[in-house]
Amino acid sequence: MPRWLEILRDAFVPLVAAGAAFTIPLALLSFVLGLALGLVTALGRAFGPPPMSALARFYVWVIRGTPLLVQLFLIFYGLPAVGIVIDAFPAALIGFSLNMGAYTSEIIRAAIASIPQGQWEASFSVGMTWTQALGRTILPQAARVATPPLANSFIALVKDTSLAAAITVTELFQTAQRIAAANYEPLLLYSEAAIIYLAFCSLLSAAQSRLETRLGRHLNPLEVVR
């Protein structure tokens, strides 16, 4: 076996283990929490009373207007100065969830707005309350519209979890850095890390296609006659 292959092989298990222990849980949890936060924010902004709408707008403005890395540093290195000490993993989880919440809220808001007014009226006309109309008529249709951009955000998030390395989370990328620092093979190690990220994101793309098919089973495939 050539030396370069041995290096890749020896690093494979620790890299995948770091991915399974930190990268994937961090991405999945942040996405779920961020999605919930995004839904609440979108509803607050679109339908809430003016103060709630303003609060939602403010949150999105702050999060989108500041770098993710700066947000992570503020939470992990900054907050201890005012007595709030958070471990690295939960700090990363908070940072990524807040970030996801802001971006996904805009996707969800647009998807809800894309459903025709007639769908609300038809729901009300059969006697549904506003909440029932939202849950049974609007959100199921909005989910299909939102799936491609949400998948975009999720895939971006998977890669962004590498920023957690900067606040001492021993995720995939930080593990690659450590091994490379010991064996002086940065080209090999970072290539291998890149390939593992790529593999995981490919799985997500496939899952996105399946989800779109499922949510759109009442529709013809999204194809346009050329």
Binding site: Q119, E121, A122, S123, S125, V126, G127, Q141, H218
Partner: peptide, 22 residues
């Protein structure tokens, strides 16, 4: 509001069926 809606049914010019339901 809900009493009135329960006691009326409406048919719209543009149908407004729920596209995601049979």
């Amino acid at each position: 509001l809900h009493a009135v809606r329960r006691q009326t049914g409406m048919v719209f010019q543009a149908f407004h069926l729920f596209p995601h339901r049979t």
